[in-house]
C-alpha cells in the first residue's frame, strides 16, 4: 500500500509527535507514505464565503500536485482532511469556481484525487481485525475516550468519515488496541477551535465541558486526530496540572497506535503536551513509556 502523504503545517511544527508516530506505525503495518514533492498549508479552515475563490488556491495546489503523483492522498490532521475534501467537492460541483482556480494555479484539476484519512486506511484497507493481530503491547482495557470534534464529521455529505451523530470509527480503533472505549455525550461537540485565540471571550471553555464529560465516564486518556483539538483539550487542563490535580492526557490516536505496535518513545514525542501522558501508560503497564 503506497499513498501520497500531506503532513500539513502543524505536523511539521508543534504536532511533531502526530507525524512521527504515524509514519513509524505505518511502516510497521506495511503502508508506505510518500510525502508530496510540493505542498503548502491548506489554509486550516475551509472558506465559507462563496463569492471568493482565492482561499481555495492553496489546497487546490496540493491536490493538483497529488494528482500528478498519481496516488491517493492521505492526511492525518482532521483540519487538512476537511479542507482538502471540501475543496475537492467544490471543484467537482462548481464549474465556475473550478475554472477560476485552475486558471490561477495553471493546472487542470477536477477534484478527482481521492483524499483519505489514516483512520479510513486502518478501517477499510487494513481492517481493525488485522490491526488487532499486530498489537504487541496491549493496553489491557485502559479506558480511553475518543474525541471527534467537528472536522472529521461535518458537513456530513462532503467529508463525513462516519455517522455525524454517532460515529464509531475511533472507538473501533481503540477496541482493536485493547483499550476500553469510553462513551460520553460530548465526543462530537466543538472544542472552540480558533476562538482559543480570543481567550477573553470564554469564561467556561467548551473544551472543559468535553474533558469533564469524558472524565466523569472514567476516561483515563482522550484521543484526537486534530492538533488544535489536542491543544484546546490539553490547555483547558493547565490549571489542574499547575495545581497538581488529576488531569486526563490528550494524545493523538497514532501515538496509541505506535505504543501498541511496540514502538519506542522517540516516535511518540510527548514533550509538547501539557498533561503528561507517560505516567498513565506506565501505570497501565504499557511497555517502555517514560513520564
Amino acid at each position: 500500500m503506497v499513498y501520497s502523504y500531506f503532513p500539513g503545517c502543524t505536523l511539521r511544527a508543534k504536532a511533531k509527535g502526530f507525524d512521527s508516530s504515524a509514519l513509524a506505525s505505518c511502516k510497521v503495518l506495511g503502508v508506505r507514505f510518500l510525502e508530496l514533492q510540493e505542498w503548502q498549508c491548506c489554509g486550516a479552515t475551509f472558506p465559507l464565503q462563496i463569492d471568493n475563490s482565492f482561499p481555495l488556491v492553496s489546497p487546490a495546489r496540493t491536490l493538483a500536485s497529488a494528482k500528478k503523483a498519481g496516488r491517493k492522498l492521505v492526511t492525518l490532521c482532521s483540519a487538512c482532511y476537511n479542507v482538502l475534501k471540501r475543496t475537492n467537492h467544490v471543484l467537482r460541483e462548481d464549474l465556475d469556481k473550478r475554472e477560476k482556480v485552475c486558471a490561477f494555479i495553471e493546472e487542470d484539476y477536477f477534484g478527482d484525487v481521492e483524499v483519505l484519512h489514516l483512520l479510513e486506511i486502518l478501517r477499510d484497507k487494513i481492517g481493525f481485525g488485522s490491526l488487532a493481530a499486530k498489537v504487541v503491547s496491549s493496553f489491557r482495557g485502559l479506558p480511553v475516550a475518543a474525541y471527534y470534534g467537528c472536522l472529521l464529521l461535518r458537513p456530513p455529505d462532503e467529508v463525513g468519515i462516519d455517522d455525524p451523530e454517532a460515529p464509531k470509527v475511533l472507538e473501533d480503533f481503540l477496541s482493536s488496541l485493547q483499550c476500553q472505549p469510553v462513551e460520553y455525550p460530548y465526543k462530537t461537540e466543538c472544542c472552540g477551535s480558533y476562538v482559543a485565540l480570543r481567550p477573553g471571550e470564554l469564561t467556561v471553555s467548551p473544551s472543559r465541558l468535553i474533558v469533564e464529560s469524558a472524565k466523569s465516564r472514567g476516561a483515563k486518556v482522550i484521543v484526537t486526530s486534530c492538533p488544535l483539538c489536542q491543544f484546546n483539550l490539553d490547555y483547558a487542563q493547565s490549571e489542574n496540572v499547575a495545581r497538581g490535580e488529576k488531569a486526563v492526557p490528550v494524545v493523538y490516536f497514532t501515538q496509541l497506535l505506535a505504543i501498541a505496535l511496540g514502538l519506542g518513545e522517540e516516535v511518540l514525542q510527548f514533550d509538547g503536551h501539557i498533561v503528561p501522558p507517560g505516567l498513565i501508560f506506565q501505570a497501565a503497564g504499557v511497555g517502555g513509556v517514560g513520564a
Binding site: C9, C41, L197, L228, G272
Partner: peptide
C-alpha cells in the same frame, strides 16, 4: 504553544 493551525485559521 498554540498550534500553527490555530494561528492560520
Amino acid at each position: 504553544i498554540i498550534p500553527e493551525q490555530a494561528l492560520v485559521a
